[in-house]
Amino acid sequence: MEFEGYIFDLDGTLADTMPAHYLSWRKITQKHGLEFSEDRFYSLGGVPTERIFNILAEEQGKTLNAAECAHEKENAFVDLISEVGPIEPVLEVVRLNHGKVPMAVATGAMRWVMERILDQLEIADYFQAFVCSEDTKRHKPFPDVFLEAATRLGVAPEKCCVYEDAQLGIEAGQAAGMHVIDVREFHTPRRITAGA
């Protein structure tokens, strides 16, 4: 099938960031007395950082400033960004379609964090549109981030192909009426927790 637009999630799809993200999550959640297992971390892939802190605090009966905690976590992640590399099979798709088909990044990350990751990988110039956590009110598994990316590309949703690595993101792509490729079928991130 010929697609008229490609949309890529960022973390765990274009960039092999998930181990570094979990290390930074573990550091900040422990600091604030929150439990956050690696399995739970992966189950919430695509959910904005601030929202995850609110979910964890409510579940565990803690009071915290989720926005401040989110910035602490993202700063801790950026400290590890030099360790982040690309997920080559996905980047190969980007390179093959560059200049032929419009492409976008659609992520639950904050814009400044997305920009740091794209700079680290030196791939920002491949894309014509970027949609971040600040750009939609609803986040994955709602389709809004992908629909907004399609709008910015000027491509009908059903003519877009989405690359995703998280279950919530896959559901979002399907809800948007797009063809979805599950990156987990060919890439497994390194686990931090022994035996996880």
Rank of each mutant, 00 (worst) to 15 (best):
I52C: 01
G45T: 02
E58V: 10
V47Q: 00
F36W: 04
Q60T: 11
Y22T: 09
S24C: 04
G45N: 03
I28M: 12
N54D: 14
H32G: 13
F53P: 00
S43C: 10
Q30G: 12
E35V: 07
S43R: 13
E35H: 05
Q60H: 05
D39W: 00
E58W: 14
L34E: 12
K27C: 11
Q60C: 07
T49V: 10
R40T: 00
E59P: 07
E59D: 13
S24H: 00
T29H: 11
I55R: 07
F53G: 03
T29E: 14
Q30E: 15
E38W: 13
W25H: 04
S37G: 05
L44K: 13
I28N: 05
E58S: 14
D39H: 04
T29Y: 10
Q30C: 11
I55P: 02
S37W: 04
L56E: 02
L56N: 06
N54F: 06
W25N: 08
H32P: 10
R51G: 01
H32C: 07
S37A: 05
N54P: 05
R40W: 03
L56R: 13
F41S: 06
E50P: 03
L23G: 03
G45V: 00
T49N: 09
G45C: 01
R40A: 02
E50W: 05
R26Y: 15
G45I: 06
V47K: 01
L44G: 07
L56A: 09
G33N: 14
F53D: 00
R26W: 15
K27P: 06
S24N: 00
L23D: 01
